[in-house]
Design a binder for these strands. Structure first.
Lengths: 142, 142
DNA sequence: TCGTTATGCAATTCACGAAAGCAGAAGAAT
DNA sequence: ATTCTTCTGCTTTCGTGAATTGCATAACGA
């Protein structure tokens, strides 16, 4: 059970936008360089984020991406789901037909408990929260 | 972030032993067939469990594996750590030198919170607990 | 019209989870 | 002793999906 690079880069990317404050439109090249993320990979991730309305894209010179809402209104969970789709620890959780005795599986029950706690934590933290944590630690944009 | 097959098989394997009750020595072939797990893969997993003292192995005719302790004394966490080693969502959590600004990373802080909750849940459930859940649902050994 | 930036899809690389194979050791049964 | 069973400890293979790259195209501003 490990956090994926896509998830990691996605969060770091939007946090960069938060750190820049307001609604500054920022090109991927800048984010990628500042946070040392492969640019094309980041592009893919931000396209997902754009589809889910987390960020908005602007083309052309001085284009880039910007948050669509106030960071306080965007939960970490929303970002993760935009990147990875619905979040589940086992295939049989969303799809009970995946194996033949989901209704008797204690492991599935336990993981549903674990997953619930996990989702609650991700939902109870917004990008603004994380931004403040970083700010308190003196993180700079570049 | 997904539960691995090794983790899944490991838990299901020991739960099979729990369901058989007591300290019955059970060969891998039986467990593998009953729970539809690739036998050689299960062997690898149980070797780890044996090294960590979760189960004990017996060779020869009528050999196999048995739990070393009462299921109520074995937490799910113990089983998972035996299989996967120390549990971390990001490499930089156990190894702060993995990236160059772990001390300023809000994502790392958040994941440490998530991880804590996760570990607590796994530690607060024993194999006996899961065994009872299954029992209540009418799970049979074979 | 030109340069910049995102878009969308295709292709590729790569790591690791997952699984299989095999020779050998240990042990029980007879 | 011999034989059969079962674990042990490698080695190797396979497959999937993560991670990354590439390219042609579309949109947009200057």
């Amino acid at each position: 059970m490990q956090f994926t690079k896509a998830e990691e880069y996605g969060i770091l990317g939007v946090l960069y936008l938060v750190a820049k404050g307001g609604t500054a439109v920022t090109p991927l090249s800048e984010i990628a360089e500042a946070r040392e993320i492969p640019e094309k990979f980041l592009a893919k991730i931000f396209q997902s984020l754009a589809r889910f309305g987390i960020v908005r894209s602007y083309r052309g010179v001085r284009g880039g991406f910007a948050l669509t809402r106030n960071p306080a209104e965007i939960t970490v969970m929303a970002v993760l789901e935009a990147i990875q789709g619905p979040y589940h620890l086992l295939r049989c959780i969303p799809d009970p037909d995946h194996c033949d005795n989901t209704d008797r599986c204690a492991l599935r029950d336990l993981l549903m408990v674990v997953e619930k706690g996990l989702v609650e934590t991700f939902e109870s933290h917004t990008l603004a929260d994380l931004g403040e944590w970083e700010h308190a630690k003196g993180v700079t944009v570049i």
